[in-house]
Structure formats: structure tokens, C-alpha cells
Design a protein around this nucleic acid. Structure first.
Length: 711
RNA sequence: GCGCCUGUAGCUCAGCAGGAUAGAGCGGCGGAUUCCUAAUCCGCAGGUCAGAGGUUCGAGUCCUCUCAGGCGCGCCA
């Protein structure tokens, strides 16, 4: 809505500038700070003051005389030092807003080109922690934003099931605890919590003992070959953990289209194909002397991106013939663009072995003790990409799917499809009608900022193969890590004078499920405090439970989404579990209030819906500045979402949503609707409320903030 | 050493491609509840935008340097 008006203003200014001054200037159009100043403004007169050797205000005044007021505007004024300010026809604009879709597919987005978003990527060897939540929320919000803008979007979650981290947990079970595969299988939930402890234990157990470290190496090789009891144990661990990760992420409405497994990349020799391309194109060469003797390396010295590196070459194949992480990643990235010349096999995701759909067993039982893994463990801990999961597709039979049927406008953005995974064996499992995965036109990898270097190398690899376009479309969505605030670290029993980095290896961190449990418990208490009266058990409990989850989801998702991606989050438990102020529950509360007004109007027998035709007849007096300001802000949703999706600064969406809610809350207190006798005033306020509700619903959908009917 | 990021109110952070009086939340203080649920709203206090130069009609925003903090630069992932 607003974008169109902006371009009308720009057009009018451009032609007036050319007519009156003979200059060719692209005017900028912005929203002035106060509504009484107007709705759109251009500082172009200020910009041109120097060039035209005239006072800005004078330029502005002449400009206004020469200007044809574009349709939809009432008047144009000169303000301040020389701004040209345009005042919208409030009545007409509001009437149009009533019929407008807040966030619609972008103009030129009929392009069927697929965007692949990879996120979560948690190592399947322990419980997810809050750092992983940041990754998953950002990835999920991005995917929702892209889909709401009409882009075909495929969400992948990469599972490194053959890496060192899984090997460590296998060693922990097999060698340290003396478990058989059956023993591991028989372990109760929460299995991911158990692994959390095992992983931390085995790290200490290794110490510098070379015999023990040899066990790790042997296990790693077993995982890579896929044969033997250790490999079997590894598959079991990975499968069970992935199920847990999917369940955790499912709690906050995050899901995926495809799980890709590293074991399949190995089994299908993706790297062999990639290596052939790299070798033939001369992108890699066999080093014969020097410290990299016997390795296939990719020279990076050409690229100025890598200037100043001590070692300008990156090893792709080690001297023992094994492939490095980057090597595998280049192969995987080639597949994502459809450049590899081979494909995975797929099957619908089956939840892990063991009791299907078993409800999670009290994840919080570990108490307040130290917990929480973290994302990329730097030293020895494979800061790799870690990943996770998705909401169980077939399991968890308990309870209805809360995500549907609650809250208007909650159609799933991508049309929640089924979850697929890469098939575990070529023997296959019958009828596969998998969608065409991969072969995207753009690939966005949500990976923490510390892996920027690796991501650059992957891009350089594509470049070296001559895939310049694809290299340009390989986008690293980098975000900073989540650390523990000094206060929270102390509460958890860690010493902390400064923010404390989480470490899965050391067992320092906050587990995702523990945080969600806390949020839900606090929500329940909050709800109980408000509904003190007679509501008895039974149904009330079910409602409360659902509401508590919705509030917890909103709080967590908003907390993660509102932070600027380039900043480290110092995770503070009190701040993260706050429900007042700039929070997810604040958004929910504003919607609940707005909806309640309309509900009450209906109960009173008053009209609770204003149509565009009626709104178009309202007098200008019905739109005071503050009420009007809400409508104007709502008209900027589309632009905000587009900018967020382009710049990958998703906090823009969160902030826009909270700004809307703040404006609404203020108006709510100043401009009563139910008790307003004047029909024009009431209708204008009601129209603004309708516009607000629809706009915030659209943004909440993108943010993944569920909107309850009551709070 | 080289590279990237960050430094704005007591705390956590906004500040859109230089532009109108530097904003919000939390915390503090003081108010608002016969009136659409106070998970709300209103008011007050609180800032040499790390520091120094520079560019400009105009700098929190751009450039240079300094200081402080974080991260990265493996035959680890």
C-alpha cells in the first residue's frame, strides 16, 4: 500500500524537478517523524541545495508550485528546513486499506525459482540448546517470510550423522558405559538429555589417553563405512536424537521439508562426483611438496577475499585420502544447485525406533543444574553445523494439532507438507513419489557467523568450477552466537564475571526444552493468576495447556527474532521469560484486545465490521493523528517484510510488529469504541482496529507467533 | 600478524541509503481500574551517541586514527 504511494510521490517529484529546475534527480521518499508533518516526505530540496545554489526552503517552495499532486493525496506542504511533505487523503486511504492484503506476493515474484533454506543442522548427539533455537527460529522466520512473498521455498535440515560428535557419544555408550545396542535402544526418554551427559563425560574421559582417543578414531571410521556394531549404535543414536530435536522444534512450530543426511552423501559418493569436477576444471591440485604434501588442495590466493591468509591453500582431500568438511560441503552445495549430476533417494520420514509417539518424559527433571549445549564448539568439538529436527509428522498422537484452527489467518505459509528424508539404503522402501528436492536457484544457509570463512571457501569452490551465478546465489545467513549473561550463568552454577560461552563439550548451556518448560510453567502461573475464579478442571485445563504453549512459543520466537543478527545475544533467563513490554505475549495481548472489542460489539448488537464503502464516507474529523498513524504504519507491512527478506535482517519484522501493537494499545486507552456514541468516530476506530488486526496477524504468521483467542 | 563484527540512558537494545527535538523496553519514581481484561496505558528522571581528527549547509550515521570487547584464519567439524 505504502510503496505504491511512495512511488507516486517520487514520480511527481521527479517530473516537477525536471520541469522547474531542469535537473535529473531521483528523490528519496520517507515517512516523517510526526504525523502532523504529513505522511510522506522528501528531503530532495535539501539534497539539491548545493547543486542548484539555492536555499533548500526556496527550492521546496518552487517545487511545490510546479508539482502535480498525485492521486490519493490531499495536499503538499513545505516543512522544517525544506522538506516537501505530502498528506494522504486519510479517508480514501483507510478505505483502501480495509480491502488490502497486508503481505502479498511481491510484484515481480512470479518467478518459479526455488529458494532453498537450510537451517537447524544440529549435530545429532545431544539435546538442542538455546543457540540452536536462534538458528532454527531465524531459518523458520526467513522461510515463512519468503513464502508469504510468494517465493517457492524448500527447507532443509542437514544431519551430520557420521561426524566426530556422534562418534563421541557412541564411544561414551559402548566403551565408557559398556552398553550394547539393545541397551541404548532401551534407554528411556529424554534420550537427548542422557546423551548430553554422556557427551560431556566422554570428553573428560578421553583426556590425553591415546588408547581412548584411538577408540574415537575407530568409531568415526566405522560410522563412515556404515558397517559394524559401532555404526549400528551411531545410527541408533542419531535417529533417536533427531526425533528429539524434531519434537523440540515442533514445540515452537518449526518444521522442515527434507532431512539430508551426511551418511547418504558418503554412501552415494557425492564427493567422488564433485571431486571429478574439481580436478578436471583445475580447481584443485595435488600438492607434492611442502606441509600439504600428498593433499589435494584448492588454491585461494587468487581471490582477494582471502588476502592475508597465512596459508592460501585449503586442503580438500587429506593425504590419507579422506575428504575434509569443506570438500563434502562443496559437493552438497553443488547438489543444492542441481550441479552435481546425481541425486539422493528419498522416503517419507519415519520417526525413530522404539515406542512411537511416546510423549516426552519430563524433560525438566534435571533440575536447574548446568546444562545446555551450544552451537559450534570450537576446539575439537566440531563447530560444524549442528542441526535438528521437526515436528513429528506421524507420531505424538496425543492431542489435536493446535496449529490449525486457532487464530484466523493462520494458513500454513508453505502449506505444511510432509517431511521427507534421504533414504537410508538403495533397497528403498517401495513407492516413492518424493517432490523434486534440490536444484534451487538460490541457497541460503543459516549458519553461525563463526563459519563465515568456511562458507566463503564453499563459494570459492563453486566459483572455481565456473559456476559464477550459483556462487553469487550462495548466501550465508550469518548470525552471532548466544552466550549466557553473567547473571544467568551464575544462577546455573557457573562462575561468571562476563558473558559465558556455552559449550556442549563442557556441558555448559541451557537446553532448549528446559527453557520451553520454564516458559510454559510461567505462562500457566500467569494464566491461573488471571483466571482465579471457578473454572474447574477438565476442559479448562486443556485450554490452559494450549494457551500456555502458545504464550511460551510467542515469547521464545519473538525473543530470538527481535535481536539483530550481528549481535551476540547475552542470554538472560529473566529477560527471555519476560511477558511485558517488547515481547511475544505483548503482541498476543494486543490482538486479543482488538478481537474482544469486535466480539463485544457483536454481543451488543452493534456492527462489528466496517466495509470499505462505509469507511470511504467517513469525515476527515474521524481520523485524528494518532488513530491515523496506526493505519499508516500498518500500510508499511509489505515493505518491511520485503526489506527483511532481502537484507536478512528479520528483526525488522519483529520491530514493526511491536510498533503496531504499541500504537494500538495507546489508542485503545484513548479512543474507546464500545462506548463511543458518535457513529463516525466509532466506525473510524473500528476500521483502524480491523486494519491493525489483519496486519498484525500477517506479521505474527511470519514470526510464527500464535495468536490465541483469549489470554 | 591478517580479516570480520561490536562500542548509543543504570541494564538490554532501535535509529531504515547523512537530514526535522537521539527513541523503545526493562529497572527507578509518580499516576490511571464504576468504562472493549492492568500481560495495558500516561507522566517524570536518566545521553559530551567509546575518544580524537576529517568530509558536509547538516554526522549517532560517511572517511582516517586511537582505545575497548567479541569472533575467525587446521590434513576439526
Amino acid at each position: 500500500m505504502l510503496q505504491r504511494r511512495k512511488s507516486l510521490v517520487a514520480d511527481a517529484l521527479r517530473s516537477a524537478l525536471s520541469g522547474a529546475f531542469g535537473v535529473d534527480h531521483e528523490p528519496t521518499v520517507e515517512v516523517p517523524p510526526q504525523r502532523r508533518l504529513g505522511d510522506l516526505a522528501s528531503p530532495c530540496a535539501l539534497h539539491l541545495a548545493r547543486e542548484l545554489r539555492q536555499a533548500p526552503r526556496r527550492i521546496a517552495e518552487r517545487l511545490v508550485e510546479a508539482l502535480d499532486l498525485p492521486p490519493g493525496f490531499d495536499r503538499v506542504t513545505v516543512e522544517g528546513p525544506g522538506y516537501v511533505n505530502f498528506h494522504l487523503d486519510r479517508t480514501g486511504f483507510a478505505a483502501a486499506m480495509l480491502d488490502a492484503v497486508p503481505v502479498a506476493p511481491s510484484a515481480g515474484a512470479d518467478q518459479p525459482d526455488k529458494v532453498i533454506v537450510e537451517h537447524t543442522n544440529i549435530n545429532p548427539n545431544k539435546a538442542a540448546h538455546i543457540g540452536h533455537l536462534r538458528n532454527a527460529v531465524l531459518g523458520d522466520v526467513l522461510a515463512r517470510a519468503l513464502r508469504s512473498l510468494g517465493r517457492t521455498t524448500e527447507v532443509q535440515n542437514y544431519i551430520d550423522d557420521t561426524g566426530v560428535q556422534v562418534a563421541d557419544v557412541v564411544v561414551g555408550f559402548v566403551d565408557l558405559r559398556g552398553c550394547s545396542v539393545a541397551d541404548i535402544e532401551a534407554l528411556p526418554e529424554p534420550f537427548d538429555y542422557t546423551c548430553w551427559d554422556v557427551y560431556s563425560e566422554v570428553g573428560r574421559w578421553y583426556g590425553t589417553d591415546s588408547a581412548r582417543l584411538e577408540l574415537r578414531r575407530r568409531t568415526l571410521h566405522a560410522l563412515e563405512s556404515g558397517r559394524g556394531r559401532r555404526a549400528e549404535a551411531g545410527r541408533l543414536v542419531a535417529r533417536r536424537i533427531v526425533s528429539r530435536h524434531l519434537a523440540t522444534m515442533g514445540r515452537i512450530d518449526i518444521d522442515y521439508d527434507l532431512l539430508t543426511r551426511e551418511s547418504e552423501i558418503l554412501r552415494l559418493d557425492f564427493f567422488v562426483a564433485a571431486f571429478e569436477q574439481l580436478r578436471q576444471s583445475g580447481a584443485v591440485r595435488l600438492e607434492e611438496t611442502g606441509k600439504n604434501a600428498g593433499c589435494w588442495v584448492m588454491p585461494l590466493s587468487e581471490s582477494q577475499e582471502f588476502q592475508g591468509l597465512e596459508d592460501p591453500d585449503k586442503v580438500i582431500v587429506r593425504s590419507d585420502g579422506t575428504v575434509t568438511y569443506v570438500g563434502k560441503d562443496i559437493a552438497y552445495q553443488l547438489w543444492k544447485f542441481g550441479l552435481l549430476g546425481r541425486d539422493f533417494e528419498y522416503e517419507p520420514f519415519r520417526d525413530g525406533p522404539g515406542p512411537e509417539g511416546t510423549p516426552r518424559a519430563e524433560p525438566g527433571r534435571n533440575g536447574p543444574g548446568p546444562d545446555g549445549p551450544r552451537r559450534a564448539e570450537p576446539a575439537g568439538d566440531g563447530p560444524g553445523r549442528e542441526g535438528t529436527s521437526r515436528a513429528e509428522p506421524g507420531g505424538d498422537g496425543a492431542g489435536p494439532d493446535e496449529r490449525r484452527g486457532h487464530g484466523p489467518g493462520r494458513e500454513e505459509p508453505g502449506g505444511e507438507g510432509p517431511l521427507w528424508e534421504t533414504a537410508a539404503s538403495s533397497t528403498g522402501s517401495g513407492p516413492k513419489q518424493a517432490p523434486a528436492f534440490g536444484a534451487g536457484a538460490r541457497v541460503i544457509n543459516v549458519i553461525d557467523a563463526r563459519q563465515a570463512y568456511l562458507q566463503k571457501i564453499v563459494r570459492a569452490g563453486l566459483e572455481a568450477l565456473g559456476h559464477t551465478r550459483e556462487a553469487g546465489e550462495s548466501i550465508h545467513f550469518a548470525y552471532e552466537m548466544v552466550a549466557l549473561s553473567a547473571r544467568t550463568a551464575e544462577q546455573l552454577g557457573f562462575s561468571g564475571d562476563a558473558v559465558l560461552e556455552m559449550s556442549g563439550r563442557k556441558g555448559i548451556g541451557v537446553k532448549a526444552d528446559d527453557l520451553l518448560d520454564q516458559l510454559e510453567a510461567k505462562s500457566r502461573a500467569e494464566i491461573a493468576a488471571r483466571r482465579g475464579d471457578g473454572d474447574t478442571e477438565g476442559k479448562a485445563d486443556r485450554d490452559t495447556e494450549l494457551l500456555a504453549r502458545q504464550i511460551a512459543t510467542a515469547a521464545l520466537r519473538f525473543f530470538m527474532a527481535r535481536a539483530t543478527t550481528t549481535r551476540v545475544i547475552a542470554f538472560d533467563i529473566d529477560e527471555a521469560t519476560a511477558f511485558e513490554g517488547e515481547t511475544g505475549p505483548y503482541l498476543q495481548y494486543s490482538i486479543v484486545r482488538a478481537r474482544n472489542i469486535r466480539r463485544r460489539l457483536a454481543e451488543e448488537g452493534l456492527p462489528h465490521e466496517v466495509g470499505g464503502a462505509r469507511a470511504a464516507q467517513l469525515p476527515i474529523e474521524a481520523w485524528p493523528d494518532d488513530l491515523w498513524d496506526l493505519v499508516l504504519l500498518a500500510s508499511g507491512c509489505q515493505e518491511t517484510v520485503e526489506r527483511a527478506a532481502t537484507t536478512l535482517e528479520l528483526s525488522l519484522i519483529a520491530r514493526h510488529a511491536v510498533n503496531l501493537a504499541q500504537k494500538f494499545h495507546a489508542i485503545y486507552h484513548r479512543h474507546p469504541i464500545l462506548h463511543e456514541k458518535n457513529a463516525d468516530l466509532r466506525n473510524a476506530r473500528l476500521a483502524a482496529t480491523q486494519i491493525f488486526v489483519r496486519s498484525l496477524e500477517a506479521l505474527a504468521e511470519i514470526l510464527g507467533v500464535p495468536l490465541p483467542e483469549r489470554m
